[in-house]
Amino acid sequence: MPRYFFNTRIGDEVIADPEGEELRNPDRAWEVARAMIHELLRIEGVENLMRAVLEVTDDEGEIVLEFPFAEAVLDDEIDADDGEIPVTRH
C-alpha cells in the first residue's frame, strides 16, 4: 500500500510529516488531508492558517496533491448551503 506524507506549507516554511501514512489511493489521501485541515483550523483558528497549503507527497517526494486550507473552508460553506458532498478536486 502506498505511503503518503502530509506536509504543511505556510509561505516559505514547511512543516514536514516524517512518518506519513499508508493509504489505499490518492482519493483516500485527499479525504485524510481534508480532515486534517479541518482539525488544524479548529485547533489553531482560521486567521493563522488561511494561506497554508497541505502538500501531500508520495514515497519518492513527488507532490500528489496540494490542498489549500482556504479550499477546505469553502467546501464547508458549499456543504452547508446544499448538503452535497464535494467532488474530489485533484
Rank of each mutant, 00 (worst) to 15 (best):
D58W: 02
A29K: 05
P26I: 04
A80I: 06
I85F: 13
V14C: 00
D75I: 05
V64A: 07
R42G: 14
V53I: 15
D76Q: 14
W30E: 15
R51T: 15
P68M: 01
E84Y: 02
A72Q: 05
I85Q: 13
I10E: 10
V53L: 05
E19P: 06
L49W: 09
D81L: 13
N25C: 01
V64C: 01
E66N: 10
T88R: 15
A80Y: 09
N48A: 15
A16D: 07
P2L: 01
L40Y: 08
I10C: 06
D75W: 07
N25Q: 00
R89N: 10
T57S: 01
L40E: 12
A33N: 05
V46S: 12
E84W: 03
G20F: 04
G45C: 11
N25W: 03
I85A: 14
D58I: 00
D79L: 09
L54F: 02
L49H: 09
V14L: 05
E71H: 11
T88D: 08
E21I: 06
D12Q: 13
H38K: 15
R89T: 07
G11S: 09
L40I: 12
V53S: 07
A33P: 02
I78P: 00
V73M: 14
F5H: 05
H90C: 08
F6G: 03
E21T: 07
D58N: 08
R51Y: 02
I63E: 14
R89D: 13
I43W: 04
F6W: 00
L54P: 06
V53G: 06
D58V: 04
Y4F: 01
V87L: 15
M36F: 03
A16M: 05
A35D: 10
D27H: 12
G20A: 07
R3K: 08
A70K: 14
N25E: 02
G11K: 09
F67D: 13
E31W: 03
L74T: 05
A80M: 09
E71T: 14
L40G: 05
R24K: 12
D75E: 15
F69L: 02
N48T: 13
I63D: 10
P2T: 07
G83T: 02
I37T: 14
E13Q: 12
N48L: 11
D17L: 06
E77L: 15
E22S: 11
P86Q: 13
V56K: 04
D76C: 08
D27G: 13
L41P: 00
E77C: 06
E60M: 08
L41K: 09
G83C: 01
I37N: 07
V46L: 14
V56M: 05
I78R: 13
E31Q: 14
E39N: 10
R24A: 15
R28H: 08
P86K: 13
V73F: 14
E21M: 09
G83W: 02
F69N: 00
Y4I: 01
R51K: 08
P68Y: 01
L40N: 11
I63A: 13
V87E: 15
L49C: 01
L40P: 00
P18K: 00
D76R: 12
A16G: 00
R34S: 09
M1N: 11
I63Y: 07
D82P: 01
N48G: 14
E44W: 08
D79K: 13
P2G: 02
T8D: 03
I43G: 06
R9L: 07
I78V: 12
E60H: 09
G20D: 06
D79S: 10
E44S: 14
L23E: 03
F6L: 04
A80G: 06
